[in-house]
């Protein structure tokens, strides 16, 4: 089956600044593709180009068979988007917003009657359906936004940080609703800066940084692919010197060392059981007392770090 979304050198510049930089990425029909990256990576800009809200500076994207530049009206018939910042007029009520959205997406009056109620119950806003969103919390507004695609059930659902500002119970509910949507046959393109969300929800994850695609694969394959399959996090009593750090990297089978702080290291290595004693011995010789050692499986953060030398949190701060 041909991919349902195909981005070809998709690029967006704002003045001199390149927000999305020659992106080549394909989304397969029926999958949840997680677009993972720190704030400012260019995720939202990418999604807005796919929904034809903004125009590419260079390159293009195909949504189904339609080129977003040539046939934007047709491309939009396949797509539904839940925006990162809820797009709601403050005087509007959830009922009006969703009823109108369903109508403009072609649902009949009869269908709307049932489905608007259903979706408002799903996102737990039925009791507040007639209030104006003016008085709503961030999380409530976000749920109104998500409800748009839940009622629309588009062929391609584009969701931009769907669970930001939502509590953990709410997050799980929304994840389940998105999985249901996928299981019904929709394709989901999800932008997120939350590692856990990308990991548990996505069939494949595409990692973005500074407008560029770093890598795209199944979360497990991504994690397995980075050299240094074991991760050891070590906290030290005092800061490590540059010289000691260089020596640490020399130890056989140590693949990479990331300094989270000067006294907090993340060591990527192979065959941890054998190497770990050597590492503790090394710290003793360097008179660096170890406060704690923790072994973990690599996460998507480690994948990100492998490509950028930064954790997502660090990249976020940049």
């Amino acid at each position: 089956m041909p991919p349902i979304i195909r981005m070809v050198n998709l690029t967006k510049k704002f003045g001199e600044f390149t927000a999305v930089d020659h992106l080549n990425l394909e989304v397969e029909e029926g999958e949840i593709l997680g677009l993972l990256g720190p704030n400012g990576a260019g995720k939202t800009t990418t999604l807005l180009m796919l929904t034809t809200v903004i125009k590419p500076t260079e390159g293009t994207a195909f949504v189904g068979p339609y080129d977003v530049g040539q046939e934007p009206d047709k491309a939009r018939t396949l797509i539904g988007m839940a925006f990162q910042e809820p797009k709601l007029l403050w005087v509007d009520s959830p009922w009006d917003i969703l009823n109108w959205h369903a109508k403009v997406c072609g649902l009949s009056a009869e269908e709307r009657k049932k489905k608007v109620r259903w979706v408002l119950e799903q996102v737990e806003l039925w009791n507040d359906r007639l209030k104006s969103v003016h008085a709503f919390s961030g999380g409530m507004r976000k749920r109104v936004e998500i409800a748009k695609i839940l009622i629309q059930r588009p062929k391609i659902a584009i969701v931009d940080e769907p669970t930001a500002q939502i509590d953990i119970v709410g997050k799980h509910r929304i994840w389940n609703m998105l999985r249901e949507l996928r299981d019904e046959g929709s394709t989901i393109l999800l932008a997120t800066n939350e590692l856990y969300e990308a990991d548990v929800l996505s069939d494949r994850v595409a990692i973005m940084h500074k407008g560029k695609l770093l890598v795209c694969d199944e979360p497990k394959k991504l994690k397995d692919s980075i050299p240094g399959g074991d991760v050891v996090e070590i906290a030290l009593e005092k800061d490590i010197t540059t010289a000691a750090l260089a020596k640490l990297k020399e130890i056989p089978r140590v693949v990479n060392v990331l300094t989270i702080k000067q006294n907090q290291l993340k060591i990527y290595l192979n065959q941890a059981e054998e190497v770990l004693p050597k590492i503790t011995e090394f710290f003793m010789k360097e008179r660096l007392q170890v406060k704690s050692i923790r072994m973990s499986e690599p996460s998507l953060d480690d994948v990100f770090a492998h490509y950028t030398g930064l954790t997502i949190e660090e990249a976020q701060r940049e």
């Binding site: 807005l48 034809t52 809200v53 925006f83 910042e85 797009k87 709601l88 403050w90």
Partner: peptide
């Protein structure tokens, strides 16, 4: 303008309605 302030213009540009 009111809609631009709340981003609703972007929403209207994203729904399945031609310009």
């Amino acid at each position: 303008y009111e809609e631009a302030d709340h981003g609703v213009i972007e929403y209207l540009l994203s729904v399945p309605v031609s310009r």
